[in-house]
Structures are given as structure tokens and as C-alpha cells.
């Protein structure tokens, strides 16, 4: 730690990063409809109000359905594309993969609006399925990226050994390759699930009257009286994600310790 200035800056930066998050529990537990100082007293009623909110539960259910479907479909599509791109050369490879990865460099609003224009023109009713369509589109590039690196680190001779021992391409894939890329599949599922859960623009415009969690929260912010209950919800979401991340981190470290590897700190 030879550079104290940099360290002070780092701590200051962390405070900037955490400032909004720390306010969540403060005002979720504050007994006032208005989110401002001075604090007026301690209460759990915002949590009770949130818990009793039926439309919130509906939105949460919708979000979970959308996120699970989108992450599974995107990972399956990503698996095919990643395998094709790492194992085979085929005509127009660059163009095809470029199109699949395009949502990464397109503002989401443009993806959402152009898809909406087509859905309206064709006459597809909006709902959970249309949100899933959009989310699969933006999740697939992440799945392809994660799974491509998983496939790339595979030793090709393992597959060739399976062929030499008489396995066909499908059973070799199932018996040799799939188990080896399973960690990649799991992290692709998790990342896609998180992206879908947090995504707002597509969920808002392609959902019609179906509200997922992010769109529901956004709608509630129009009503000042609903804000404290949403802060209570935010508090619970933060606690939940910190717990989940800590568990994931714990298992990652244990995995590293087991294989005797060195912790390089790349948990994303």
C-alpha cells in the first residue's frame, strides 16, 4: 500500500457506489411517506404494505416465468451458436455471428421498438411471450460469449479420443463435451436470468398489459405514496442478491481450493 492517495480515492469511490443502496433500508424503515430528512421514527409498515400487495406478487411471478424461459431458450440457442462457431467453419460465418451478437451494440430502445413495430404489424398480441422473445434476443449474445469461451478452453483431443473409442458425434458430445462445459452453461443461465430480471425497456414496451417486476416498480414510482413500499421491496432485493452472491462466491472459492488453483479474482 505505497500509495495512500489512491486508497483514499478507492474508498471514496466505494462510498459513491454504495450511497444510494444504503439509503434503501434507512427510508424503508422510516415512518414517513416522504423520503427526506429528518427521520421521523421506526416502522415495519412499508414491508407489511408491500407484502400485502397482490399485483406485486403477480408481477414477481411474471418476472420469474419470463426470466426462466428467456434464460433457458437463450442458453440453448447460445450453446448451438457457440459450438458451431468454435468447432466448424462455414460460409458467411462472420455475418451470421455478427447478426447474433448485434444486440450488444444496439441501444435497447431500438431493439424493442423495431420488434414492437413488426409484432403490431403482424398482429401478435402482447404479453409474457413477447417479452420472452425480446429478452432471448438480448440474452443470446451473452450466452454465446460465455459458452464460446467454455468451448474454446476444451482440449480437442478429448473429443477425438471419444471418436477413436467408437462413440458417434452425438454421444461424444453428450458424454465428453457437455459435462466439461456444464460450468459455462450454469453461468450462462445465471447471467441471462439476471439480465432478464433487471431489464426494463423491452419488458415495458413489449409486455402490453402484462407487468413484470421492473415495469411494475417503475409504474409505482409515479405515486409518491407508494414509494416507501417500493424502497422496502428494494431493500429485500438487495439483501437477497447479496446473500445469493455471497453463496456463489463461497462455492467458487471452495471449488478453487479443492482443485488447488490460485484465486485470480475473476468471478464475473
Amino acid at each position: 500500500m505505497k500509495n495512500p492517495g489512491l486508497r483514499v480515492y478507492a474508498i471514496g469511490y466505494l462510498i459513491f457506489l454504495y450511497a444510494p443502496i444504503i439509503l434503501l433500508p434507512v427510508f424503508a424503515l422510516n415512518d414517513s411517506k416522504v423520503v427526506s430528512f429528518p427521520l421521523t421514527g421506526f416502522t415495519f409498515r412499508w414491508f407489511q404494505e408491500m407484502w400485502a400487495d397482490d399485483s406485486l406478487r403477480e408481477a414477481l411471478t411474471n418476472s420469474l416465468i419470463v426470466a426462466i424461459c428467456a434464460s433457458v431458450i437463450a442458453t440453448a440457442l447460445g450453446l448451438l451458436a457457440a459450438r458451431a462457431s468454435t468447432r466448424f467453419t462455414f460460409p458467411a460465418k462472420g455475418g451470421i455471428l455478427g447478426l447474433i451478437m448485434l444486440p450488444l451494440v444496439l441501444p435497447e430502445m431500438i431493439v424493442a421498438m423495431s420488434l414492437l413495430m413488426v409484432l403490431l404489424a403482424v398482429g401478435v398480441p402482447l404479453g409474457k411471450h413477447t417479452i420472452i422473445m425480446g429478452h432471448v434476443l438480448i440474452c443470446t449474445p451473452f450466452a454465446v460469449a460465455i459458452l464460446s469461451s467454455a468451448f474454446q478452453s476444451l482440449d480437442k483431443s478429448l473429443e477425438e479420443a471419444a471418436y477413436d473409442l467408437g462413440e458417434g458425434p452425438i454421444s461424444a458430445f453428450r458424454l465428453i463435451i457437455l459435462p466439461l462445459v456444464t460450468p459455462g452453461i450454469v453461468s450462462s443461465l445465471l447471467i441471462c436470468f439476471t439480465i432478464s430480471l433487471d431489464e426494463f425497456i423491452i419488458a415495458n414496451f413489449l409486455g402490453g398489459n402484462t407487468k413484470v417486476l421492473s415495469a411494475y416498480i417503475y409504474g409505482q414510482f409515479r405515486f409518491p405514496a407508494k414509494v416507501p413500499a417500493m424502497l422496502a421491496l428494494g431493500t429485500i432485493l438487495v439483501l437477497l442478491s447479496i446473500t445469493l452472491l455471497s453463496i456463489a462466491e463461497y462455492f467458487r472459492r471452495r471449488g478453487i481450493a479443492k482443485t488447488g488453483g490460485k484465486d485470480t479474482g475473476g468471478f464475473l
Binding site: 457506489l17 444510494p20 416498480i217 417503475y218 424502497l231 428494494g234 432485493l237 442478491s241 479474482g265
Partner: peptide, 14 residues
Amino acid sequence: LFLITIPFWTSYVI
């Protein structure tokens, strides 16, 4: 890295 990324697992809208 863990400390830096934690705040971003909260809903973007919130």
C-alpha cells in the same frame, strides 16, 4: 471486485 459489483445487482430502475 465483489464489493464493486454488489450495488449493481439491485434493480436498475430502483
